[in-house]
Design a protein around this nucleic acid. Sequence first.
DNA 1: CAGAAGCGTAAGATGTAGCTTACATAAGCC
DNA 2: GGCTTATGTAAGCTACATCTTACGCTTCTG
Lengths: 105, 105
Amino acid sequence: MSYEAAISALDDATRRLLLERLTAGPLSAGELAAGLPISRPAVSQHLRVLREANLVHERREGTKRVYRLDPSGLSQLRAYFDSFWQRALTDFKDSADNEHEGEGP
Amino acid sequence: MSYEAAISALDDATRRLLLERLTAGPLSAGELAAGLPISRPAVSQHLRVLREANLVHERREGTKRVYRLDPSGLSQLRAYFDSFWQRALTDFKDSADNEHEGEGP
DNA sequence: CAGAAGCGTAAGATGTAGCTTACATAAGCC
DNA sequence: GGCTTATGTAAGCTACATCTTACGCTTCTG
């Protein structure tokens, strides 16, 4: 339970598209499925994955279910990447420094 | 060819572990495979995925192959996330603003 | 209450990612 | 040249992710 589910969820073009549509604002499951080249149940299954990764949040509204982005999953993911980035950049810097061993005039 | 390969590459615990080991500095393929619960060829295949995603860079050194982190793949990934983050945060803010419709004393 | 609207869930088919074993390749050593 | 070290590649197997079709569950409407 953490960033792993979020990474896994993002490793799918359809789910990334769904998330990007939601960056413009909340949408119902039907609206999210509209225009996609896959069946509506398939979209429903993708939405479940996104929900279990805490990337979206569902709210029942009459017979509709409105989805919106969930900050918690995104922040977990960002925390992981930020720590990784920092270590990676430090390594780049160290490598660049050590690249000059045995050089000179 | 872009951030998609990087996301896909990160969706694997073994590859994430390899990358994290490399944040401490360059390592040979054998050193990277040491201690892992999978075979060495399996690690070699993971390294290929990381290389094709521009997340690591290989340098031949005698009979060894030394791997180090590659900034290009990481920066592509970061660019995607940053743009996504920004849109997502904007949506959160908008949602919070609209949350107060019809409220009040 | 009957019917429709809007979605989720279940079951089954299929493609593919990741593993293993066996083999190929390239560089150093004697 | 032959042997060892270090590593990548190929072929085949298995597990799982994703799709489709069929069905079930709520909620509104007349």
